[in-house]
Every structure is written in C-alpha cells, then in structure tokens.
Amino acid sequence: MTEPTSPDALETQGQSFAPRPKRRDVHGWVVLDKPVGMTSTHAVAVVKRAFAAKKAGHAGTLDPLASGLLPIALGEATKTVPFVMDGRKAYQFTVAWGTQTDTDDTEGKVIATADGRPDEAAIAALLPRFTGTIQQVPPKFSAIKIAGERAYDLARDGEDVVLEARPVEIDALRIVSHDGATTTFEAECGKGTYVRAIARDLGITLGCLGHVAHLRRTRVGPFDIADAASVEALRESTESAAAALLPVKAALTLIPEIVVHRDAALRLKRGQSVLLRGRDAPVESQSVYTTCGGVLIATGMIDQGEFVPHRVFNL
C-alpha cells in the first residue's frame, strides 16, 4: 500500500498550501436556510468558516433530512441563544400515509403498514385534538436523555426505548394540501414539540399509519425563513456573507428594550444592578434587555424597579 504523502513532502515537491485564515471576533446572527442532507453541526462549521469566526453555535438542532431555518449565533450572539430556542416555531411537513417507521420519518425501517388512506374531511375533523396543550410521546429516535444517554443512541444500539408523554403546545395545525396518499400541513408550536410525533399519532388515530416524508422549518422565535440566507450565498463572496449577518439584538426583538444612559451602562458592564428612573420605567418584568446609544449592553430581569443583569455583552 502506498503511504499518503504528507503536506511537508508535497511542499518539498514544489507544492504549497494556503494558510488557514486567522479566526476573528465576529458578533451577530446568521439565519441559514439549511439544505436537506446537511447536519446542524456541519451547517455551523460552514457559517463559521464563511466568517472566519472564533465562536459559533446554533439555536436548535434541525435533522439532516429536514430543510429550512437554522439560526446560527456568532461570538457574543451565543449569549442570546436561549431567547431564540425558547421562541415559537413553525414548520411545513408532508405525511405519507400507510406506513409507520421506527424513526417516524423516511430514514427509519418500516415497522407497520396499513391499506386504508384517510380523506381530507376525516383529517380536518381530527386536528382540534392535536392543537392546544396536548400530551405527546417523543420519538424513540430523539435527543432526549435517558439516564444520561441520548434516546437515539440507545435505539440505534437495539435497546427498548420507553419515553414518557409530556405536555407540548401546538398553537395551530392546518392542512395545506391533500392528494390521498400524502397530506401537507403547517404547524405552529412551542419548544419541545416533535413534528414526527404529530405525524405518527395522526396516522395511528386515523387507523392508516403515517410518517414524515418532508419537513421544512419556516420560523424560529423572531427569525423567519424569508430572511434566511443560503449556503451558496455564504460561500459566494465575503460581501454576500456580510450581508447575511444580523445584529446580536435581532434575537431579542420579542422582549422589551430599555434604553439606559452612559453611567448606568458602565455599571451594568461591571455586572451591577441599576435603578430605573422615570414615569414609564417598569417595576416588574420577565426578560428584558438594555441598550445605550443603540448598542446592546445586557439582558436580565427587573426586580422592584431595578434592572438586574444576567448576561453582559462586550460589543
């Protein structure tokens, strides 16, 4: 067997390698339209490479078989990831009737089949039972941990995975199209909802079985698919990549903003609380964020008229 040629050996043969670009501090959000077949980890690496960024992370895994919106945080934006992950989500998905798989999508093996196919009226009549706060058993192939192990790892090892039902919130579930063999839906839901489980349970309840054939995420928190950039655009040029970079505070548009003066901003930068003055200053609130001169300073809570910083930003 021929030994692989080392980079040093190639260099002595007159070939050279371009040095890796130096990593830099980049802060902001990239709303990526992830293609089918790409893992979320790979998507983060693509964005990180496009910006030569030191630090990056995503706000909620999107399965390789799914496409659509994957918000990716760079630098200081990683401090705002929880605000995006806790936001509402929207999906468009197609259910193929007649077959149930062990993963509840096309990646798994068939575990049951049925001959019947539902008509649109029967599906529509069932949808109210799948909206609001419902009890949902997550798919066996999911990232939920059981005794410290991911459920999908246990399932792949052949173990009998048993997951408990848990409450999830489904704000809306609508039929987009129906052709007999498949039905396409739009769903708006809260954190922790599994679309694959919706497809599985619809099929079981209708008596025809079903699994997700196509899945596309169209919204996560404040981010919409209309604002998403493609992988090709990020790779095209530094200019097109720069145009896709949103400010850090883009993740915070669904919570209140409080503008503070310079002295208060300096206190917050040191992690100290500040008293909010003025007639319109809130007394109690859930999560809020502060800015000074349009620059994001901190996120935190208001307690008895004081803003208590939880996360301070270095922008």
Rank of each mutant, 00 (worst) to 15 (best):
V283T: 14
I255D: 02
T184K: 07
D63V: 02
L315H: 10
V36F: 03
T238A: 14
D119E: 13
R279V: 10
K249Q: 13
S237I: 00
P4L: 10
I255R: 04
G148C: 08
V312G: 03
G190K: 11
G158I: 03
V259T: 15
R49K: 14
P19L: 11
L254P: 02
S142L: 06
P139L: 09
A50C: 07
R267P: 01
R156S: 03
H58E: 08
H178N: 11
T5Q: 14
A56M: 13
V81P: 10
Q304L: 01
A151V: 11
Y289S: 06
K34M: 07
A241E: 05
V36P: 02
G14V: 03
K191V: 01
M1L: 12
Y152W: 15
T99I: 10
V161D: 03
A45N: 15
Q286Y: 06
G158N: 01
E284Y: 12
D280G: 09
G158E: 01
Q272A: 08
G305I: 03
E159N: 00
S6I: 06
I146G: 02
G190L: 09
L245M: 03
D263F: 09
T131M: 09
L254V: 01
V283K: 14
F223R: 05
I204Y: 00
R24G: 08
Y194D: 04
L202W: 12
V220F: 07
V161W: 01
D227H: 14
T193F: 07
D157A: 15
T61E: 04
T103R: 12
K48N: 02
L32W: 03
I198F: 08
V26L: 08
H214M: 14
F83L: 09
F17L: 13
P128I: 03
I170L: 07
G37T: 10
M1R: 14
Q304K: 05
P138C: 00
